[in-house]
């Protein structure tokens, strides 16, 4: 159990529109819990909201956001925060998470998870904003490490140390995306295992799993294929460190049939039982990071 008192929900998947037909025609969703992209439901009063209400009666749900814009130097969007709180009041999620990143500034929203310089100035800035978010939501925020492709000349604090400091200053929890750790570690040349060792284990509430693409000169976080072996190895390390945290498989492009998705998730159960999957990383000349088109499908 983490120090925030949040439960280990077991093994879950990200709720995607392409799986609505399966989930609405089968009583057993085959997984322990679901994670939604919060923004897909904040102003959606159509079928997706109906599906969510149906599933929430069967399984715990976690709200995972992509628009808090925590690292930005634009003011926090209070309308967004209010909508987030309204959805939480209706859904009663197990927790609410978002990313250590910024998504826009000066009124432009990139719909990407952009990196920020990591130094004492930004640490104070993000800490203050997490405090405001937690006060607005009335609950601790769970913060995810992003994948990244560049670092800044003005960065002075390693990312794991930065996250640990945020957790210490604000009381927030951590969503450890082991695929993101692997992607960033490879792209920036740091030790992925040491990164995980540096995080405060008692703050790790959830672990994300996903696949990525090897573009030769860098890894790109594509969420479009099975989890490769090196990421499973980090997953095992993370679970051993934190003593068991909720596991979530993300698959956001080239999304497989629901049973295939669940089969991939169930490999996580096998890993914890000692069966390490053998899966190579797909190679491609180029790839699109952080696919989001699946989110539009929720409204169709």
């Amino acid at each position: 159990m983490n120090s925030l008192g949040l439960p280990n929900l077991g093994f879950g998947v990200g709720l995607r529109a392409t799986h609505f037909p399966y989930l609405m025609s089968h009583d057993d969703p085959l997984v322990d819990w679901f994670e939604i992209i919060s923004e897909n439901f904040l102003h959606n009063h159509g079928y997706a909201r109906h599906v969510l209400a149906t599933l929430a009666e069967k399984r715990p749900v976690v709200m995972h956001g992509v628009s808090l814009n925590l690292g930005s130097y634009d003011p926090l969007n209070r309308d967004y925060l209010a909508a987030l709180k309204d959805l939480a009041n209706w859904l009663q999620p197990a927790w609410i998470s978002d990313h250590l990143c910024w998504t826009g500034i000066h009124g432009v929203n990139s719909h990407d998870l952009l990196p920020l310089p990591l130094n004492e100035e930004t640490l104070q800035h993000v800490s203050n904003r997490i405090d405001q978010v937690q006060e607005a939501l009335g609950r601790p925020l769970i913060l995810e490490n992003p994948s990244s492709y560049l670092t800044f000349s003005s960065s002075t604090i390693p990312e794991a140390e930065f996250l640990a400091a945020l957790a210490g200053r604000t009381g927030c929890g951590l969503l450890l995306d082991v695929n993101n750790v692997y992607v960033s570690a490879t792209n920036h040349g740091f030790d992925a295992q040491a990164y995980i060792q540096q995080l405060p284990a008692d703050r790790i509430v959830q672990v994300h799993l996903a696949g990525h693409t090897d573009c030769g000169d860098c890894l790109v976080d594509t969420h479009d294929q099975p989890v490769p072996t090196p990421v499973w190895e980090l997953y095992l390390l993370a679970q051993r460190r934190c003593g068991g945290a909720a596991t979530l498989l993300e698959w956001d492009a080239a999304i497989p049939a629901y049973e295939e998705l669940v089969a991939e998730l169930n490999k996580a159960r096998g890993v914890l039982a000692g069966a390490m999957p053998t899966a190579a990383v797909r190679q491609a000349e180029d790839a699109l990071s952080t696919p989001i088109a699946f989110q539009v499908a929720v409204g169709r």
Partner: peptide
């Protein structure tokens, strides 16, 4: 702005974001 010295060039790293923004 962008730190160098490891792996891909700064231009390539930035282009993951710049090209990805439009394509996404």
């Amino acid at each position: 702005v962008v730190a160098g010295g490891y792996g891909a060039s700064a231009e390539r790293r930035l282009d993951v974001y710049a090209a990805g923004y439009v394509l996404r």
